[in-house]
Computed example of a mutant assay.
Amino acid sequence: MTSDNRTPEAQGQVSDAVKGNWVDHLAPAWARPYLRLSRADRPIGTWLLLIPCWWGLTLAMLQDGQYRWFDLWIFFACALGAWLMRGAGCTWNDITDREFDARVERTRSRPIPSGQVSAKQAAVWMALQALLAFAILLTFNRNAILLGILSLLPVAVYPFAKRFTWWPQVFLGIAFNWGALLAWTAHSGTLAPPALILYAAGIAWTLFYDTIYAHQDTEDDALIGVKSTARLFGEDTPRWLKRFFVTTVTLLGFAVIAAMVGFNESPLALLVAIFGVVAMGWHMIWQMRLLELDNPGRLLMLFRANRDTGLIPLLFFAAALFL
């Protein structure tokens, strides 16, 4: 029998959690397993779910030039909803993947395979988070509510994608960037072509960052038969990342142009927004230059760096609102 020399606060922590995170050290002991299910100790996923929402909101505002007090609520509601739905989605993922997670080094410390919570307890926690998110969704207009309900389909399917396709990252992109459509509609009332182009850009971006992330698990995934773009591309991954980078930047640029040309009368605002897209591209190039496929620590660092990748154009979009 081995002894556990970790501090009480650290016991039960997940292997790839952010070091010194508040869940392991500040949250009540009874709440830690549930917060770990929600990935509260790994906030990068919430950011990656939230940023497309804010892209959609700011581009919709840039198109019609109308800034209402309700837009401030959409901004904060997206943040709350992203935290809750990311938590619900991750809990669902852990329920469906509990047998796989127990066989992978990086994931066997998660709450269900490590025995911190049961699958039934996790299901109750998932339902609670989803209901709270639904309550927030009900504050939006009818079309946004319908879009929010429809988003449950890709969320439900995603955990199973790696069982039947080499491209599960596409399904993740479909789910993770849905907020771009929802936030645009929450502001404008209806969808429009720029929102769809923005959505496609987000999916390409997800293929970029989640392929990097998936390279951490390629050996374990091969042993248990789990598919991913990382396994599919192998050593050819840098070439594919370049393709995803070009697609992301190109589509995001087209989304900005489609949203603003003929609608927004400020050439300077358009220039600033386009510069934000270019700056995002430079950040993605920086990631590719630092890429080391056999270095898990570097892969995790680059994956987490995509929070800044997405925030860069957002800051420029926000600045363009005032020009």
Rank of each mutant, 00 (worst) to 15 (best):
F100P: 06
N5T: 11
A88P: 06
R108I: 10
F322P: 02
G253Q: 03
V261G: 01
K242P: 01
M301A: 12
G189E: 04
L153I: 15
Q13E: 12
A183E: 01
L128D: 02
D220P: 10
N141F: 06
S188L: 12
L196C: 07
P111R: 13
K227C: 05
F254L: 13
P159H: 06
T211I: 04
N143Q: 14
G65Y: 05
I197F: 01
T46F: 05
S3M: 10
A144Y: 05
P52F: 10
D16R: 15
I51L: 15
A255M: 05
A222W: 07
A201G: 14
W178A: 01
G45Q: 04
T206E: 02
R239F: 06
G310M: 06
T229V: 07
L35T: 07
A156E: 01
L311M: 14
I257M: 09
D294G: 09
L321C: 03
M1I: 11
A222R: 15
R142I: 08
A102S: 15
L252W: 02
D97Q: 13
R110L: 11
F245I: 03
N21D: 10
T7N: 03
V272W: 05
D71E: 07
S15I: 13
C53E: 02
K162S: 01
Q169I: 09
A201H: 03
P28H: 10
M288G: 11
A144G: 01
T206P: 02
D221A: 06
R231F: 07
D220L: 14
V18G: 05
A192H: 12
W73C: 11
G87Q: 10
G173N: 01
V246D: 02
F254S: 05
F254C: 09
A82I: 13
R32N: 01
I95T: 11
W83Q: 11
R298H: 04
L232N: 01
A192F: 06
A88W: 11
M288A: 09
F164N: 02
T139R: 15
F245E: 11
H283R: 15
Q13C: 08
W167T: 06
L26Y: 13
V272T: 08
G276R: 09
F233G: 00
L48G: 01
A200R: 08
R243D: 04
I145Q: 13
G281W: 03
P154Q: 02
L293P: 00
T46N: 02
G87C: 09
L232K: 15
I44V: 15
V155M: 14
F140Y: 13
G276E: 04
A319E: 03
D210W: 04
L182D: 00
L271I: 05
R39P: 03
L270C: 01
M288S: 08
A119I: 10
